[in-house]
C-alpha cells in the first residue's frame, strides 16, 4: 500500500497487545501510553499535525474494561485512526484475568467462572457512531490483511475487532476467543478483497445478483465483497446491528466488514484548521498584535 512511515503515527494503551507497535514501522513516531487512555493521546497528536494517519493497537481490557469511556468518544469524534483491538477475552499481560469481553460462563483454571455478560466491541463502536467497523479472526490472516488495508484507506475512525487468542491463558477448545472455537464457528459475512486506488472514478455499485458488492473508499481505493449471504449491505447501520445481534443469538463468530460510512467528516475536518500543521506554527502565526491587547484592556479597565 506504499505506507510512508513518516506519514503515520503509532499509538497504544497498556497490555500485551499494546506492545505490538514496537514491532512495526520503526521510522514512525510511537506512543505506548496509559491503560485505556490511547484515544486521548491519539486525538491530541493527530490534531497537532492533521495530515498524519494514526494506527492504534489496544486490547480488550484496554478498550472495553478500563478504557470504555475514551473508546466511546474516539468513535463519536471520528478521529482519523485505525483502531485495532487484539481481543483475547483476558488481561494477558497481568496473567489472564477475565476482561469485559470474556463470555458469560467462561471457566478458567485460576479465575473460576465469569458471571458477567460480555461487551461486544463492534456493537459498542456502532452505537457510538463509528464510521468503519469490522471484526476478524487471527486464524483467518487473509481476511485480516484485506480489512487492514481497507481500514488504512478509511478517512475517520476504523475499528478492527480482531479475535486474537491468548494461547497462554485463554485458548481452551470451547472458549469464544480460542483458535479451535473460532475455526469451527467463524461465519464470514463475505469474502473481501482490497483494490488500490484507481484513476477512474468508481461509482458505488448496487448489488450485483446479491453476489458482489463494491464499496469505494475515500482515497479512491475499493473494497470488493463477494459471496454475500442474504445480500448483506455494510452501509446500512441498522442491518449491521441486526447481524451482530443474530450472531450473538446463534453463537457465531461473525467476521468481515460490518459497517462503513465514507460520507462523514473526520474530526480535524470539522475544524477550520490552517494548512500548516499546528505544531509548526510559530510566533508570527500565533502572536496577536499589541493593539489587540490594548483594545481588550480598554474594554475591561
Amino acid at each position: 500500500m506504499n505506507v510512508v512511515p513518516e506519514d503515520v503515527l503509532k499509538f497504544s494503551g497498556i497490555g500485551c497487545s499494546s506492545k505490538s507497535p514496537t514491532y512495526f514501522l520503526n521510522r514512525t513516531f510511537g506512543f505506548n501510553s496509559l491503560h485505556g487512555r490511547m484515544p486521548s493521546i491519539a486525538t491530541g497528536a493527530l490534531f497537532a499535525d492533521a495530515r498524519m494517519k494514526g494506527i492504534g493497537v489496544s486490547g480488550d481490557g484496554d478498550t472495553a474494561s478500563i478504557g470504555m469511556g475514551q473508546f466511546k468518544h474516539v468513535m463519536r469524534r471520528n478521529v482519523n485512526l485505525v483502531y485495532i483491538v487484539e481481543n483475547n477475552g483476558v488481561y494477558g499481560l497481568t496473567k489472564g484475568q477475565f476482561s469485559a469481553t470474556a463470555e458469560k460462563g467462561l471457566h478458567l483454571k485460576k479465575q473460576g467462572e465469569n458471571p458477567y455478560m460480555p461487551v461486544d466491541i463492534c456493537m459498542e463502536a456502532l452505537v457510538s457512531n463509528a464510521t468503519f467497523v469490522a471484526r476478524s479472526f487471527a486464524g483467518n490472516p487473509k481476511q485480516v490483511k484485506e480489512l487492514l488495508k481497507a481500514a488504512l484507506s478509511h478517512h475517520g475512525i476504523a475499528v478492527l475487532d480482531i479475535i486474537s487468542p491468548c494461547v497462554t491463558f485463554n485458548n481452551q477448545e470451547n472458549a469464544y476467543h480460542s483458535y479451535a472455537w473460532g475455526k469451527d464457528h467463524e461465519e464470514p459475512l463475505h469474502e473481501i478483497s482490497y483494490i488500490a486506488p484507481r484513476s477512474e472514478i468508481m461509482l458505488e455499485q448496487e448489488m450485483m445478483d446479491g453476489e458482489i458488492r463494491e464499496v469505494t473508499m475515500h482515497d479512491g481505493s475499493a473494497v470488493i465483497l463477494k459471496n454475500l449471504e442474504k445480500g448483506y449491505d455494510p452501509t446500512n447501520r441498522q442491518e449491521a446491528l441486526r447481524v451482530l445481534e443474530e450472531a450473538q443469538q446463534n453463537n457465531w463468530l461473525l467476521t468481515g466488514l460490518i459497517y462503513l460510512n465514507t460520507a462523514k467528516p473526520a474530526l480535524t475536518d470539522i475544524y477550520e484548521l490552517v494548512d500548516t500543521p499546528l505544531n509548526r506554527l510559530g510566533e508570527s502565526d500565533l502572536r496577536p498584535e499589541r493593539a489587540l491587547l490594548d483594545k481588550i484592556n480598554a474594554l475591561m479597565f
Binding site: 513518516e6 521510522r27 513516531f29 506512543f31 497537532a48 505544531n279 509548526r280
Partner: peptide, 25 residues
C-alpha cells in the same frame, strides 16, 4: 522532535516504561 517531522531519523518511541537516552526500552 515532533510527530510530523519527515526526516527519517526524527522518529522515536515514547513510553512510560524504562527507557535509555535513545528512547529505547
Amino acid at each position: 522532535s515532533l510527530p510530523g517531522n519527515k526526516h527519517p531519523m526524527s522518529a522515536y518511541f515514547t513510553r512510560g516504561t524504562g527507557h535509555d537516552e535513545y528512547a529505547r526500552y
